[in-house]
Design a protein around this nucleic acid. Structure first.
Lengths: 137, 137
DNA sequence: CCATCAGGTTTCTAATGGAAACCAAGTGTG
DNA sequence: CACACTTGGTTTCCATTAGAAACCTGATGG
């Protein structure tokens, strides 16, 4: 990875940018981060990776998510083609969400992140303690 | 990935949790997402992955970051042991940030995400257009 | 004596997130 | 008939956060 390939200074009014301009506003990675860079998107995608699930089940099982953020995030994920929404006209209506192949691809890429967290977050916690001690002097 | 291993309902007052409880508040992945789940952390880590860099250089090259968020995010990353901060007592003072081995590990895991974005964000964009057309009817 | 540099911090405002209330449609209950 | 209850949301309101811009520090050159 060299300087000129991974970076760019100004990158105005571009919707498709060449590989590697990760720090410019309109590069694919920035678009991804602006969209699913939040924890609820990632957690919901992970959840639906286990199998389709209804709104209320998602709400129960993704610890701490508000109904508003759940609805909002699901709609964004659906719009992005990462999940599908299926309405069954029962009474009361039941709505099922499922991951798409595209979503599953993304989840695959996220799995490395999850694995890293599982094994290395303890090191991060340690680093925090050390930092706080240094700064408390 | 099965139901009981990846999930958990309530997970109160736990700082170390067993592998896989990705949706509980105190699992490692949630901790990671709460911390470096924001785009600035990821972008700065990616930037410093290319080599050490000074505050002003980071500000110039990470498109759109404010000075406040830059300072704030760098301090969090330093506290987490993902980057280091070195002050050279020149005049004016020059401060250099560099990635740590731990940070580089995390960056490695993030690379899969970046790669996915580079190749598949166009599919996401397409899905958006299709969704907006469906909904406009 | 003032402007300039890097590397921040402070201040103020705009946008966002979360909690809780509300809603719609249909069904069961007294 | 009136009322409560279900799911899957939306709305409202308030607290937190992000961002823009001004300010600060300390030495140095004009």
């Amino acid at each position: 990875m060299q300087d000129g390939t991974f970076l760019s200074l100004d990158y105005p009014n571009v919707t498709t940018s060449k590989r590697g301009d990760v720090f410019a506003r309109n590069c694919p990675t920035r678009q991804l981060l602006d969209r699913v860079g939040d924890k609820w998107s990632i957690l919901l995608l992970g959840m639906l990776g286990e199998g389709e699930m209804r709104f209320s089940a998602l709400k129960r099982r993704v610890d701490g998510i508000s109904q508003k953020m759940l609805a909002q995030t699901l709609r964004t994920l659906e719009r992005d083609g990462l999940i599908t929404r299926h309405v069954e006209p029962t009474v009361p209506v039941s709505v099922t969400y499922a991951i798409t192949p595209l979503g599953r691809e993304l989840l695959g890429a996220l799995q490395w992140l999850i694995d890293w967290a599982e094994t290395r977050m303890s090191a991060v916690a340690q680093a925090q303690v050390a930092y706080d001690l240094r700064m408390a002097v």
